[in-house]
Design a protein around this nucleic acid. Structure first.
Length: 327
DNA sequence: ATGGTTTTTACTGCGTC
DNA sequence: GACGCGGTAAAAACCAT
């Protein structure tokens, strides 16, 4: 029932100052604007990542994977297109292997003869065998399916799945799997990916959609992080705020206030060592009070998976901190 | 293993609808 | 009386050593 992050509190306080200086360059993988915290949008046509609110271009030299030609209507698009889908890490073979359709039709849509049909059947069988040739491929196939399932259950965006897939791939290629369950590693990869992408899900949430228990998850997570040298910063309380706000159907105004509260708490230095989820929950609750919106501590505690007591304790601190700042 | 810190559980009293 | 809220003490969980 406890909802604690895997976190190193001591480490947090150590890195806190460093975090602020390096936040400039760490725009990659973060889906909110560093200026105004609004959502970022990828503009593939120009290879840019742009803030939806203030128009700030965060990344301007991304690789444009779109076509180099332009099409003015869908017919023209069909005509000019000469490639299939881009490669993706979400499929175990990056989507590059041959796929034989199941319809017994030739390229013109004509039915196949009996003899040809049997031939296709054989080809399908063998193609399938080659596609999932060795154990690693099969392993990967299963894990990616698992990642897919869990991330859609958690409502995670596609880029997180991609990241999780990449992490899993690396784990696999570095032989970190023996002795660990596919499930466990897949779950850990997803958890790490979500945190890296700035849309963290708490351990409890992840555990709920996974088939592994928390102990195994934390163990493999730590292991993966260490062995792959992944850098996962302590979760930012603010990254939980938007989700809680929308779950509780609160206004943008409240969201802004919640962020302010966290910000002033950060400046007052009372964040260190506390659970980020708890902070986020408390800030949402406090902000709702300030904006005269009706939410009970119980509501917040449910969507955040945090005890009411913790919310009480945190939000007292938050209010104190903000008063000190304003006074 | 142990100690220090944080979070949770459980219980209580107060005010309001 | 049920509910929301605030507080406390003891237990449990967690992290670091």
């Amino acid at each position: 029932m406890s909802d604690t992050e895997i976190r190193t509190y001591a480490e947090r306080s150590r890195t806190e100052t460093a975090e602020q200086t390096e936040q400039e360059e760490s725009t990659e993988g973060i889906s909110t604007c560093p200026e105004c915290n609004a959502r970022l949008e990828a503009d593939t046509e120009h290879g840019e990542t742009v803030c939806t609110e203030c128009g700030l271009v965060v990344e301007d030299d991304a690789i444009d994977r779109g076509p180099e030609w332009r099409a003015f209507d869908s017919a023209e698009k069909d005509q000019k297109s000469r490639v299939g889908a881009p490669t993706t890490n979400m499929m175990h073979d990056k989507g590059l292997s041959t796929n034989i359709g199941w319809q017994d039709k030739d390229a013109y849509g004509n039915q196949l003869s009996n003899r040809q049909r049997r031939k296709m059947q054989r080809l399908r069988t063998w193609n399938e065998r080659f596609r999932t040739r060795d154990s690693k491929e099969r392993n990967l196939k299963q894990a990616l399916g698992e990642i897919e399932r869990m991330s859609s259950a958690l409502g995670l965006p596609e880029n997180v799945r991609e990241t999780a897939s990449v992490i899993y791939r690396r784990a696999l290629s570095e032989n970190l799997l023996p002795g660990r369950s596919i499930e466990g590693v897949a779950t850990a990869a997803l958890y790490a990916a979500a945190r890296q992408a700035g849309v963290p899900r708490s351990l409890d949430e992840v555990e709920r959609v996974s088939r592994v228990d928390k102990m195994e998850l934390t163990r493999t997570y730590r292991y993966i992080i260490r062995e792959l040298n992944l850098e996962v910063k302590p979760a930012d309380p603010e990254s939980y705020v938007p989700r809680f706000i929308s779950d509780l159907e609160l206004s943008d105004e409240t969201e802004r206030r919640a962020r302010e509260l966290i910000e002033s708490a950060r400046n007052a230095g009372v964040l260190s060592g506390k659970s980020p989820v708890g902070l986020a929950a408390a800030s949402v609750y406090a902000a709702a009070l300030l904006c005269n919106e009706k939410v009970t501590q119980n509501d917040v505690s449910e969507v955040a998976d945090i005890s009411e007591v913790t919310i009480r304790n945190r939000y007292k601190e938050l209010l104190e901190a903000s008063e000190v700042v304003t006074a």
